[in-house]
Nucleic acid binder design. Structure first.
Length: 499
RNA sequence: CGGGGAGUGGCGCAGCCUGGUUAGCGCGCCUGCCUUGGGAGCAGGAGGUCGUCGGUUCAAAUCCGAUCUCCCCGACCA
């Protein structure tokens, strides 16, 4: 027998400790969601507040998650044909001014550099709130011919936006992200790229972060300043609010016209390039917390967890001789298999303490090994996603663990998907809409005439906004009437209150 | 940026209203012993100019003013 399920922790007949919460230092989610969120971030040592308003320090445990996200995302971006580069942090004010909608969109949140040393600058420099302008100015130099296209460049960088209200990872004054900037020969190619990246993001977030998303177009109100069209992926957090997880913009020729990015096409006509830009940020880490976390803390998807497995030797009797070597062997064997594993043989903490600590930190799988296990050539495995204990045979451990990790990854996704489905509601009319947003929260699918006036009214009265207009409209549903004004509904959209 | 709440050893808090011994408590931390299968026990110990700046007073954690930061609820945003 390779695997035997022995008990589910926390409830049921076989429960080791009925109804007991092992991690007791976190405010329950149901009691105060914001507090729960911040406590998890601080107590797991993902991040800490810096002494300046709205800024945080990403600590090693949080940064390790970001590095995993980066690595997996970078691979996908490169596989899709892009290259990495790096552009300056400072952008001359005149560059931002070239695209007025862009400037106006970002003006309230730009940090300005006015002095170099003691001297006042001739022209203020913006600390990049995004890099379309500086990159556009360079593309103008680099692109002359259709043979230079497409240009497919990505940059990993920090961004500064002087936000008024901040929250760790979700919205901080400075944050880390990836921004892709591409230039194409035709409008069609730019649109294709926009959509390709949208689905790249969707696939990444669903497969690696185990968070289901709805993909679609943004309304005019929610569109990126300076874009022709903005597309986004939106996920539902476990408090019923939506979070934008990534955006992909079709910039059309807005920036190429102001930065004069021209090329001679195949018919020898001088043309402006068609551009896109797209990004995901450290906000994804906040989404991990809010999607998967529970009252015991984090539950990290194995794909991005700093440690996928933690091995806890049980120190009984002459454990350094009888137990530790086995724990070390498990550690090594798993490591050789490419699994991120942490052996916790610290003597100053009891096993119970370690169990709680690693649960709070969201390690997907814990392996416990004590003298009794060694005698029977086995260990105890505890899954973080379902809090179930199983007994695993040591000989087959190295084969079993990757399977277990895969199970945990998909189980987290399905739990989140199930939550999303249970919290997506239809609203036929505005009364139902208001009732649902108050009592049930979550996504509300409803018909919308496409008019910004209706969108504004709904937002004003319910705090809900158009999150996305799904790309694939559900054909079987023939057009209904706008949930607000009752005019012919053009589009079926997802509304929600959002972060 | 509006409305509300809060800053006291690393963390969570009490003390403040009604100014006055050496500023307490729980957790954590250090040392030792003993322990370790779900956050052990005992003994000893370290650590605080009470967010910051200024004012009132013989005397300020406590009263007054300013300022910074955090949290919650709204308007703006990845």
């Amino acid at each position: 027998m390779d695997r035997i399920e022995v008990a589910k922790i926390g409830d049921g007949e076989n429960s080791l400790n009925k109804n007991e919460r092992f991690v007791k230092q976190i405010t329950p989610k149901s009691e105060d969601f914001s507090r729960w969120y911040v406590e998890i971030i601080r107590k797991t040592e993902m991040a800490d507040y810096a002494p300046m308003k709205g800024m945080m320090v990403i600590r090693p445990y949080g940064y390790a998650i970001w590095e995993n996200i980066q690595q997996l995302m970078d691979m996908r971006i490169k596989d899709a044909g892009h290259e990495n580069a790096y552009f300056p942090l400072f952008i001359p004010e005149s560059f931002l001014r070239k695209e007025m909608e862009h400037l106006e969109g970002f003006a309230p949140e730009v940090a300005w550099v006015t002095h170099g040393g003691q001297e006042e600058l001739e022209e203020r420099l913006a600390v990049r709130p995004t890099s379309e302008a500086i990159i556009g100015s360079m593309y103008a130099k680099w692109i002359q011919s259709w043979r230079d296209l497409p240009v497919l460049i990505n940059q990993w960088a920090n961004i500064v936006r002087w936000e008024k209200v901040t929250r760790p990872f979700l919205r901080t004054t400075e944050f880390l992200w990836q921004e892709g900037h591409t230039a194409h020969e035709t409008a069609e190619q730019a649109q294709e790229e926009t959509i390709r990246i949208l689905y790249l993001y969707k696939d990444f977030v669903e497969k690696e972060l185990a968070i289901p998303v709805i993909e679609g177009k943004k309304s005019v109100r929610e569109k990126f300043a300076g874009a022709e069209e903005t597309y986004a992926i939106e996920a539902l957090m476990s408090d019923g609010k939506a979070l934008q997880m990534g955006t992909s913009h079709n910039l059309g020729q807005h920036f190429s016209k102001v930065f004069n990015i021209r090329f001679e096409d195949r018919e020898q006509n001088l043309q402006y390039v068609w551009q896109t830009s797209w990004g995901v940020s450290t906000r994804l880490i906040g989404a991990l917390v809010m999607s998967h976390g529970d009252d015991s803390g984090l539950r990290l998807p194995p794909q991005v967890a700093p440690f996928q497995v933690v091995v806890v030797p049980i120190a009984l009797g002459d454990w350094k001789k009888d137990v530790l070597p086995w724990a070390e062997k498990i550690n090594l064997d798993l490591r050789q298999k490419g699994i991120r594993v942490r052996l916790d043989s610290r003597e100053e903490y009891t096993p119970g303490w370690k169990f709680s600590e690693w649960e709070m930190r969201g390690v997907p799988l814990r392996l416990e090994i004590g003298p009794r296990d060694v005698k029977e050539n086995r260990c105890v495995a505890v899954r973080r996603d379902v809090q179930k204990k199983e007994i695993l045979n040591l000989d087959s451990l190295v084969q079993l663990v990757p399977d277990l990790l895969r199970d945990i990854q998909t189980s987290l996704f399905h739990q989140a998907l199930d939550f999303q489905r249970r919290n997506t509601h239809w609203a036929e009319d505005y009364e139902e809409f208001k009732e649902t947003i108050e009592s049930k929260k979550g996504f509300i699918k409803a018909w919308w005439c496409g008019d910004t006036g209706c969108e504004d009214k709904i937002k004003e009265e319910t705090m809900a906004t158009v999150r996305v207009i799904p790309i694939r409209q559900e054909e079987e549903e023939k057009a209904g009437r706008c949930v607000y004004c009752r005019k012919e509904g053009r589009e079926l959209v997802y509304f929600a209150r959002a972060y």
